[in-house]
Simulated scan of single mutants.
Amino acid sequence: MFDPKLPNVLGLDNFFDLAVCNPPFFRPEWKRDYADILQSARLEDACVTVADVSAEIIFLAQNLRLVRSGGIVAMIMPDGMITGYRAKSLRSAIIANHRIDCVLQLPQNSFHDTDARCFIIFITKEAHQCDKIKLLRYDALDGLLESIFVSKADGEQRLDYDYHSSKIDHGKEVTTLRHLGAEVVRGSVGTVEARDSRYPIFHTSDYLASESGLINLPSAMPMLENKKLVVAQAGDILMARVDRKLHEKVGMVVSGMAAITDCVYRIRLPIDAQEVALKALRSREGAARLKAVSKGVSARLLGKADLLDMPLNL
């Protein structure tokens, strides 16, 4: 499948009307032939560096070569290709040179032995991209949910239904952490340093003792020469940045001080906005939106900009 001469060998170049496929998921060693495959499929701008070229991108390019102009490729895509920052150039290249008819988000656990989110992308080869891209989601309980449409610019950023659905105003009064004047800072203490530290450290595992959402830290923080430490204190909201269940790990410091690890965000807000923000982030809607805007297969990752601009129900 990685031979640039494959369509000619098969004698099926630009032959098929429809290709339905499930690609292999691995990162092959770069070969110059891959550049020819990508260029032939008009995806030469899909990867910034050769390190970004994955098997699924080559697989997509080969299938685009095999279908005729106006033919359709329906392909299963992993979460990273649909939501990842490093795959933005791929999404941009597809939108610029082909037409994304629809992206269908599949239910969790659709495939055996993995709970990774997966999608099916429907692409019409060399067709003009419409102004809006259709996103769908199939729910295991409720079936096919109502479709939503996003702009090409928004589609280049991300193509997952949950993310864009979380930004729709459903008639409730909403705001964002950015509008509330929040300062969001990532912790600076690494795993090794945290294990050997001489000072109090707060990590994602410490939320287990803070299920109420109220966090009590050690009462004293020694004066240290390390000026790069990010220290949490009373009034700060601490939010997991990387964790399998980051949407459940939100709390406010009510006493004490501690440095935070690089797996935790410190959210500092004006006093009158602290409790409002905490309640919104810990609500059922807040947890669902945090889960929607985060990305990743096993451990989820929450981007700073996504956190700042995520709608919050007041």
Rank of each mutant, 00 (worst) to 15 (best):
T191R: 05
A46E: 10
E285I: 07
R241A: 08
D52Y: 02
I271E: 10
A209M: 12
G71Q: 05
L307I: 05
Q105W: 04
D79F: 00
V53K: 05
E285C: 02
A93E: 09
Q105R: 12
S205M: 03
V230E: 04
L214G: 00
G296I: 12
K291W: 13
C21H: 03
L314I: 12
I168F: 11
A280T: 11
L135G: 10
D79Y: 00
T261L: 06
E126Y: 02
L180V: 02
R241S: 02
C102L: 13
E183K: 14
M257E: 14
G155K: 05
I57H: 04
K134M: 11
P23I: 03
L106Y: 02
D36R: 13
R268A: 08
A46P: 07
R244P: 08
K304T: 05
H179F: 10
M257K: 15
R178A: 15
H164W: 15
L60I: 07
R86N: 08
A41H: 03
G171F: 04
E211L: 13
E56S: 04
L64H: 02
I76L: 14
S298F: 15
E211N: 07
D3T: 08
S92D: 15
M75T: 12
A258V: 08
Y85R: 14
L307F: 09
F119Q: 09
M221S: 01
K134N: 10
A288V: 09
D162N: 11
